[in-house]
Computed example of a mutant assay.
Amino acid sequence: MKNETTEIDLLELLFFIKKKSKSIIFSMAVALILAIIFLLVEKDKVDINYEVKINSDAPSMIINCNTDFDCKSNFIESIIKENSDIFTIQSDERTKVINLTWRGKLSEKPIADATIKVINQKISDWYIQDYQAYKRIIDDNKNNEMNGTELYTKIAFITKLDYSKEKDFIFISKGDVSKKYKKGIFIVLSLMMGFILSTFYHLTKRSILEYNEKKIFKNSQIN
């Protein structure tokens, strides 16, 4: 009995879809047109992906973050955001990498590469300034109450590493080019979405109408 009921329900659903086929096909056509327009607009667009790896921890990172990668990446991300808003930034604690994504025309990739060079230099400048700032703390506090404290010892140890002579504080990979949208898959998904949404709309509408009819019939029976 259960299988027969399921079969009847399925046949009823197929019959209903057939009955509404014109509306469903129209919805799929609209979805297809929108998908094609979107692909035409985005046809020359690509994603350029850069990976930023921290090679050296700045004094601020060591004192404030210890081994917390998210904390360290926040220092780098703040410098990137101060100097450019063209990248989507996402840090990955598992791989210890900060991912930068730029989207635009492939012909405009030199713009992204040039911005990366500027960011790299700004980060290097910050490392040197950070080192020098902590070195001044040590130099200015040799004979005061801070001398001998745990913080003083930590800063003194850090400043023995001459950051001002280093060059490769971070590593930024060459931008990998990837296209975000595959035309065939995107069009098929759009058609499926048009079919599903249209069918769902008609089924919901029918359910509401049937519910209202039953409610009206029930009220008429009571009266």
Results as ranks from 00 to 15, higher is better:
residue 1 M to T: 02
residue 3 N to I: 10
residue 3 N to G: 13
residue 5 T to G: 05
residue 5 T to K: 15
residue 6 T to P: 13
residue 6 T to L: 15
residue 7 E to T: 14
residue 7 E to Y: 11
residue 9 D to T: 14
residue 10 L to H: 01
residue 12 E to R: 04
residue 14 L to V: 04
residue 14 L to W: 00
residue 15 F to H: 06
residue 17 I to G: 01
residue 20 K to F: 14
residue 22 K to F: 13
residue 24 I to L: 15
residue 25 I to P: 03
residue 26 F to W: 07
residue 27 S to E: 06
residue 27 S to P: 00
residue 30 V to I: 15
residue 30 V to Q: 07
residue 31 A to E: 11
residue 33 I to D: 10
residue 34 L to R: 10
residue 37 I to F: 01
residue 44 D to K: 15
residue 45 K to E: 12
residue 45 K to H: 10
residue 46 V to Q: 08
residue 46 V to A: 05
residue 47 D to K: 08
residue 48 I to S: 03
residue 49 N to I: 14
residue 52 V to F: 02
residue 52 V to C: 04
residue 53 K to L: 12
residue 54 I to S: 05
residue 56 S to G: 04
residue 56 S to T: 09
residue 59 P to S: 06
residue 62 I to M: 15
residue 62 I to Q: 15
residue 63 I to A: 09
residue 64 N to G: 10
residue 65 C to H: 00
residue 66 N to Y: 12
residue 66 N to W: 11
residue 67 T to I: 14
residue 69 F to G: 08
residue 69 F to M: 06
residue 70 D to G: 14
residue 70 D to T: 14
residue 71 C to Q: 07
residue 75 F to L: 05
residue 76 I to N: 09
residue 77 E to L: 00
residue 79 I to A: 00
residue 79 I to N: 06
residue 80 I to V: 05
residue 81 K to F: 11
residue 81 K to S: 07
residue 84 S to W: 00
residue 84 S to L: 10
residue 85 D to H: 13
residue 88 T to C: 03
residue 90 Q to S: 14
residue 91 S to Q: 02
residue 91 S to I: 00
residue 92 D to V: 08
residue 92 D to H: 06
residue 93 E to M: 14
residue 93 E to V: 15
residue 93 E to K: 13
residue 96 K to Y: 06
residue 98 I to M: 06
residue 98 I to H: 11
residue 99 N to C: 09
residue 100 L to Q: 06
residue 101 T to Q: 13
residue 101 T to N: 12
residue 103 R to E: 06
residue 107 S to R: 01
residue 108 E to I: 03
residue 109 K to P: 03
residue 110 P to I: 08
residue 110 P to F: 02
residue 115 T to G: 09
residue 116 I to E: 12
residue 116 I to D: 13
residue 116 I to N: 12
residue 117 K to Q: 08
residue 117 K to G: 00
residue 121 Q to H: 05
residue 122 K to Q: 12
residue 122 K to S: 01
residue 123 I to K: 03
residue 123 I to E: 07
residue 125 D to E: 05
residue 125 D to H: 00
residue 132 Q to I: 01
residue 133 A to S: 10
residue 133 A to F: 15
residue 134 Y to G: 08
residue 137 I to G: 00
residue 138 I to S: 00
residue 143 N to D: 04
residue 143 N to F: 12
residue 144 N to H: 06
residue 145 E to Y: 09
residue 147 N to F: 07
residue 148 G to R: 11
residue 148 G to I: 15
residue 149 T to V: 07
residue 153 T to G: 01
residue 154 K to Y: 01
residue 155 I to A: 02
residue 156 A to N: 14
residue 165 K to M: 09
residue 167 K to L: 12
residue 168 D to C: 02
residue 169 F to Q: 04
residue 170 I to V: 10
residue 172 I to E: 04
residue 176 D to Q: 14
residue 176 D to L: 13
residue 176 D to M: 04
residue 178 S to K: 02
residue 179 K to M: 14
residue 179 K to Q: 09
residue 180 K to C: 03
residue 184 G to N: 12
residue 185 I to A: 12
residue 191 L to P: 00
residue 192 M to C: 07
residue 192 M to R: 09
residue 193 M to P: 02
residue 194 G to Y: 07
residue 195 F to S: 03
residue 199 T to D: 11
residue 201 Y to I: 08
residue 204 T to W: 09
residue 206 R to Q: 00
residue 211 Y to P: 03
residue 211 Y to D: 06
residue 213 E to H: 11
residue 214 K to L: 07
residue 214 K to S: 01
residue 216 I to V: 02
residue 217 F to S: 09
residue 217 F to E: 09
residue 219 N to T: 03
residue 221 Q to I: 15
residue 221 Q to H: 14
residue 222 I to N: 04
residue 223 N to G: 12
residue 223 N to D: 12
